[in-house]
Design a protein around this nucleic acid. Structure first.
Lengths: 243, 243
DNA sequence: TAGTGGTCTAGACCACGGT
DNA sequence: CCGTGGTCTAGACCACTAC
């Protein structure tokens, strides 16, 4: 009885073998799909699902009639890969430490909020849990996160949670699963208080990311805006054409 | 003999019916996959490929055990959707006009270039075709594009091409197909000449996008940096989790 | 329990690239 | 011509949601 592969374990194993350089030949060419099917004993569909994930994230590229090849994309320092999970989470994954150095929470009505989700309106007296977090990367000021959560969905948010990953907190403590996020990336000027945190002058710029986070069920659960130190933050994206 | 659907026409038809609001019910729920299969007379695979594209781009979301639903994401003014084609191209598609108001071309060695592709190095005397283009959106200064093309691949670039879409030019005139692009988004300070174009002061910020463009065959064909007016440019992105 | 989307198989044909 | 990836079919079982 040999090992059974599903798409996730298959994907992971191919990545592992690519990194160990035991899969591709010296030109970076992978074995053909038919050979990989035989090797892993999976169907064409399962194999192509796995290769499709790698292709989407820029690990490989495929050329009809020729084969599949490894694509080395430079792992830029402090770069944020949108194809992976949450923005800050994957920095930690690379051995960097993200810490929340201070955090505030209060309840505010919609009328006092100076930015709003892209596709939804609320009445002025709709209440939100406002959270503001100042976070460092390797002990250096890195980002300010300004979020508004819908109290009807998330309930109360504990003080401890504000110093960790909100994503994990919602999932583990509240049983809420975020399904998708709309992101709006801009460049904006810093107010005095945020500029001070970054050791910058007022009106210096910031790379900002506005998120609208939706539950798996399609319901808006939070919207937020993250201000990054423009000197450190780079957002990485891999785009396939011809799809 | 009824109409034959392939994935692209199927995707397009579903989008059309969603926009005409003749597919979903009043709650934004689409017919089940089995019903759509029967309606279009296609296999589950083809249908799910089409729905997968819509899901990836944020048009719909799917919930296991419940169904598929439309996701209305606000069409932000001047927003650039990374899931679509070239960055500037899709603004034109929405009826906005992008024009090149001035353009320069010269040949330079690698040693004189102040930014470089993420994963590749060249010898100092490797020559590049440098192109600088100043472009307006609706007659308002919108972006500056600073690109370096590999002359061994693209050959000479005509003056006319510099005032249109380089993407189309490479494809139609040179028979070159760009297969994928690595993008690095940052916020940077403007030099005097660029700032002047945007009617901004020196050292005001800009949303910048560094592109490394690769041919379908995996060969680097150009790298560039685009500076957007930070007041106008918003980059839109839709992210699915749990994949 | 019935219906939904998620995963997976086995097989076929097509389009393209290199010989 | 053969081998490659790209598309598509028919069918099966699983996981989850609602009732």
């Amino acid at each position: 009885m040999q090992k059974q592969w599903d798409i996730d374990s298959l994907t992971a194993d191919i990545v592992k073998r690519i990194k160990k350089q035991t899969l591709a030949d010296k030109n970076g060419k992978l074995p053909s799909e038919r050979k990989l099917m035989a090797y892993y004993n999976v169907s064409r569909y399962a194999l192509r699902q796995a290769l499709g994930k790698l292709s989407k994230n820029g690990y490989i590229y495929q050329i009809q009639g020729r084969g599949s090849y490894i694509h080395e994309h430079h792992d830029q320092t402090n770069s944020i890969n949108q194809s992976d999970l949450g923005f800050t989470e994957d920095l930690a994954r690379e051995g960097k430490s993200i810490q929340t150095v201070s955090a505030f929470q209060r309840i505010v009505p919609f009328s006092e909020i100076d930015f709003s989700p892209g596709n939804q309106q609320f009445s002025d007296d709709q209440l939100f849990v406002e959270i503001e977090r100042f976070r460092t990367l390797e002990n250096k000021p890195y980002l300010v996160e300004h979020s508004y959560y819908l109290p009807e969905i998330v309930g109360e948010i504990s003080e401890e949670a504000m110093y960790g990953s909100m994503f994990d907190y919602l999932s583990k403590e509240k049983g809420l699963t975020v399904g998708f996020i709309d992101k709006f990336i801009r460049c904006e000027l810093l107010t005095e208080s945020y500029a001070t945190f970054f050791h910058l002058e007022t009106n210096m710029p910031s790379l900002t990311v506005r998120d609208d986070s939706y539950l798996r069920e399609g319901e808006l659960v939070a919207f937020s805006k993250v201000y990054y130190d423009y000197r450190d933050a780079t957002l990485f994206m891999h785009k396939k054409l011809l799809e």
